[in-house]
C-alpha cells in the first residue's frame, strides 16, 4: 500500500513571529522555516508503517514556493521514498490545497493519506477533512493511534471529552495529533541518501486547479498586549489580592 503525506513548510514553531508594520501579513523573510510539526508526526507514522511492512512506498507532497523542496528533503531523510513539489508563489488556502491533493490522490492511488491536523501558521485545521470530503472518503482526524486491521483503519481520536475510537473504511484520510508518535531525527547517512531520492516538480495548472484564494486578507494586526502584573511576596498576599483587588475569589 502506498501512503501519501502532505507536508507544509511553515515558520518554525520556536520563532516569535512579527506582524508587518503595514498590516498586510506576518514577516516571513529571513525567518527560520521548518516542516509543520504535525506533518513530521504524519511522516513518522508513515515510516513506521513501512518498517512494519504495511506500507510499500511513501510519497511526500508539499505545495508552495520553490523552497518547499527543502521540506520534502527533510521528509525523504526521515524515510519517505519520493517527493512531489507543487510549486507556486500564490497564497494557498486549504480548499485549493485539498483540490490539488485530490488530483494527486487520483493519480497515485494511495491506500492511506496521513497528514497534520493543523498547520501552525494559518491554524486552519481543515485540509484533511476537506480532502476526505472531495474524495468521498472516511476521515480519522486528531489521531493518537492508528491500527490497520481487517481491511479497515481503527483510529483513536483526541476529542473534547477524552478519546474515541472509530473504524474507517479504506482508503481513508488520517490527521495526526501530538500524541501519535515522537518523530525521529534524520541520521546523517539518511540525509545523504535523501539527496538521491527523486522530487517531481509540477505547477497547479498541471493539476487543473485554480488556486485563487477565497478569503482575502483585509488586514493582519497584533493582538492587544497583556501587561505583566506584579510579583507577590507570599501566598497570603496572593490570596488577599485575588479577594480584594481582582475580586475573582
Amino acid at each position: 500500500m502506498k501512503i501519501l503525506v502532505p507536508i507544509k513548510r511553515v515558520v518554525d514553531y520556536n520563532v516569535k513571529i512579527r506582524v508587518k508594520s503595514d498590516g498586510t501579513g506576518v514577516e516571513t523573510a529571513g525567518v527560520k522555516m521548518s516542516m509543520n510539526p504535525f506533518d513530521e508526526i504524519a511522516i513518522e507514522e508513515a515510516v513506521r508503517l513501512k518498517e512494519k511492512g504495511v506500507a510499500s512506498e511513501i510519497i511526500a507532497v508539499s505545495m508552495g514556493v520553490a523552497a518547499c523542496a527543502e521540506t520534502i528533503r527533510t521528509a525523504l531523510a526521515m524515510g519517505a521514498d519520493r517527493g512531489v513539489l507543487v510549486e507556486t508563489d500564490a497564497e494557498l488556502q486549504p480548499l485549493a490545497v485539498a483540490k490539488m491533493l485530490q488530483v494527486l490522490v487520483t493519480r497515485e492511488q494511495p491506500g492511506l493519506v496521513i497528514m497534520g491536523k493543523q498547520a501552525i501558521d494559518d491554524d486552519m485545521n481543515a485540509t484533511g477533512q476537506m480532502l476526505a470530503a472531495l474524495l468521498g472518503w472516511s476521515q480519522g482526524t486528531f489521531a493518537s493511534k492508528i491500527v490497520l486491521e481487517d481491511g479497515a483503519a481503527f483510529v483513536t481520536r483526541e476529542i473534547d471529552g477524552g478519546l474515541e475510537t472509530v473504524k474507517l473504511s479504506l482508503p481513508t484520510i488520517i490527521t495526526a495529533d501530538l500524541r501519535l508518535n515522537e518523530p525521529r531525527y534524520a541520521s546523517l547517512p539518511n540525509i545523504m541518501k535523501a539527496r538521491k531520492k527523486p522530487i517531481e516538480t509540477i505547477k497547479p495548472a498541471d493539476l487543473g486547479v485554480d488556486p485563487a484564494p477565497r478569503l482575502t486578507i483585509v488586514s493582519v494586526a497584533e493582538p492587544p498586549k497583556r501587561q505583566a502584573g506584579v510579583k507577590v511576596g507570599s501566598v497570603a498576599e496572593l490570596v488577599a489580592k485575588l479577594k480584594l483587588e481582582a475580586k475573582v475569589i
Binding site: L95, M124, M130, L131
Partner: peptide
Amino acid sequence: AIGKNVMPRVAALLDVQP
C-alpha cells in the same frame, strides 16, 4: 472537536473555503 471535524468537510462539499 465536533465542529472542527465536521465543518471543513461540509465546506469542501459546498466548494467553500471554511
